[in-house]
Amino acid sequence: MTQYRNVILLALAQACFLATSMTMVTFAGLAGIAAAPDPKYATLPVTLSIVSTALTTAPMSIIMQRTSRRFGFRLGAAIGVLSALMMTYAVYSGSFILLCVGALMVGPFQSSAQYYRFAAAESVPADKSSRAISFVLIGGLVASFFVPTLWRFFGDLFEGVDYMGAFVFAAVVVACVFIPVAFLRPLEEAFDVGSDNAKEEDARPMGAIVRQPGFIVAVVNAALGYAMMSFVMTATPLAMEICRIGEASPEVIQQHVIAMFLPSLFTGFLIQRFGLFSILLVGHMAFAVAFMTALSGIEVMHFSVALIALGLGWNFCFVGGTTLLTRVHTQAEKGRVQGLNEFLVFSTTGVASFAAGLILNLYGWQTVNQAAFVMLVIASAITLVWGMAGQLRARRGRL
């Protein structure tokens, strides 16, 4: 019961994290428009939060290794509360600089939350770890159904200042992380991220690892999949505001988040059943549907369908790319390889989120989706070459 209690508690913490993440994506850019000296920089707060997450993921892991999971979760939540409060004051005072500093500070909280699923896996027997991870993610998915209602509630409480209620809500929900974390057992002790069977001298040089076609395809799908998703998603609330349908953006983002995480219940099964190559191609097709829908109109329906397809594409490409990554490294190599992958993914995503505001402001919503199509063509071409080469090798092997 102690093992499964941890999973339930971590699912509650994941719900708080997802609620905060949804708030950042939906309202940080809108608050940026109101406070930025130039609308081109409206998405800078979102970009800073992503970059900060990328830069603090490895340090947070080291802190947890030397102290405990619980300490790391508490530290991240404490910084997250300060971040949300600073962004609240920034909105109240109209300070774009404070808004950016607050967004930068949210990174440690978001990076600490990346380890909720790993802590859940560590709390149960090895053969139950995949179920534990899925359950934690579903905790966040369930929360996404209620977040728009809470946004409206807090917005009504602070209706005198646009978007202030959303960041007050973020501060409250981050503070709620302390409740489930307080009851975690036995995650109050330092943990060992290494493996008894993994020796550092057995690891290959990084140059040999990154030259593998499988590594390249894994990183391309994870990084560009995340970048395409962030690029279009970050621009969506701003584009809807320009189109005078901004009041519908919370529901559109909610549908997008559900589409991102709901397929996780069966993506692993689909990969086992149909293979990685097929699932990656399905993800690319979902991205294509998203961009074509966005290019076909600017009604709420177009934004909604595009963002749902965008979420599905992200899930298949990100889960597929992550799965492929685990097949190109050994236990001794996983720390460095996964660290490099995370850095590349979040760095690419940070650039994409910042570019979204610039391109939207300078060239419009159509160009945003056309630029995303270019990224899709690159990812699809690399994946197709890799997949066809693998099928050719398999045929030769049978001969």
Rank of each mutant, 00 (worst) to 15 (best):
E333T: 03
A306G: 05
R327S: 08
F118G: 06
C317Y: 05
A208V: 12
L44H: 00
A166K: 09
V25R: 09
I271S: 08
L358S: 06
A222I: 15
Y41C: 01
A356C: 01
S347N: 13
E159G: 15
T67R: 09
L99Y: 06
A218S: 14
F343D: 10
V300M: 13
R393G: 02
V81Y: 06
S123P: 00
G335W: 14
F231Y: 13
P39D: 00
S111C: 12
N221K: 02
A248M: 12
A352N: 02
G311D: 03
M233E: 09
P125F: 13
G140I: 04
W386K: 08
L295H: 04
V142M: 14
L360R: 01
T53Y: 08
G76H: 09
F191T: 02
V46Y: 07
L104D: 01
F153L: 14
S278Y: 11
T43G: 00
T293I: 15
P148Y: 04
T322L: 14
L276F: 06
W151A: 04
A113I: 06
G350M: 10
P263A: 09
Y41P: 02
A11H: 05
G139K: 01
V219Q: 10
V351K: 07
L376K: 03
Q114I: 15
T56S: 12
F73P: 01
F71W: 10
A190M: 06
R336Q: 09
L376T: 03
S144E: 12
